[in-house]
Design a protein around this nucleic acid. Structure first.
Lengths: 136, 136
DNA sequence: CGGAATCCCTCACGATACTG
DNA sequence: CAGTATCGTGAGGGATTCCG
């Protein structure tokens, strides 16, 4: 194992690549949507609020390239393209869910920490208008 | 639970924020380095090959803001600043390790899928110089 | 329907220099 | 030692248009 913390290390680069994909804004969302079963392009687009056509295409390509999903074309009119998780993709779902569970469980603690941090960083907010202003 | 796949949903935004932090190039690396115990600023900088001073500072600030690490200043000369995982930070380590384990286990499968995908995308590479060239 | 191609903008990040 | 400040680059990503 021996994570070397050296980004140039082979293991570390592989891990970083996976973490980058997980941290990608849309990929995990797509994978979770595909969890229950295959979906068509526009089904995905409608399911995921706010994604652009471009980013959906690019994200799907990346996931396909990594072997996490398959792309099946049915040459009908209109054409039909289905995306589906591979076994590898489904296996990724488990550790990802562990992480999302952690996120949901601890989101309030994080929010609180952020609020406290921001309050401490902005002591100006604490600046009460003290008596000087209305001295007249 | 009910992940809505709607980025505007409260749960989904919290999850995305955590995934973004995990997917961040340096944060997870920093957290794993801090796993065994507290470290000073330049210890971290030397431990993590390739990180710039700026990014280390920014990443540490972000982690501190999220309540994942603490920053302790010892006002000596020269000044000394120690960073240490909080309980929350340590608890994050477990699901993250699950993900990194998955990454290490499946890195070869991913590499293979990528190679095949790239080969299929570039049929030009298969272009053998066929007999025409050396017809003479 | 399911893309590919183009334009354009922002902002994340690295490099460098300065400070307490 | 442990930062902050400033600048310059370029990759990420949205909007739009065209195609089979």
């Amino acid at each position: 194992m021996t994570l070397t913390h050296d980004p140039l290390s082979t293991n570390c680069r592989a891990v970083s690549a996976v973490l980058a994909r997980v941290g990608d804004k849309w990929s995990v969302l797509i994978v979770t949507v595909l969890g229950p079963g295959p979906r068509r392009f526009n089904e995905l687009k409608r399911s995921i609020n706010g994604i652009s056509q471009r980013m959906l295409t690019l994200s799907l390509r990346g996931l396909e390239r990594d072997g996490l999903i398959t792309r099946t074309v049915t040459p009908s009119t209109p054409p039909r393209v289905d995306y589906e998780l591979t076994e590898l993709g489904r296996s990724l779902l488990k550790p990802v869910m562990a992480l999302t569970d952690w996120a949901i469980k601890n989101q309030s603690a994080i929010k609180l920490a952020q609020t406290e941090f921001d309050a401490a960083s902005q002591p100006d907010m604490e600046r009460r208008p003290l008596q000087a202003s209305s001295s007249a």
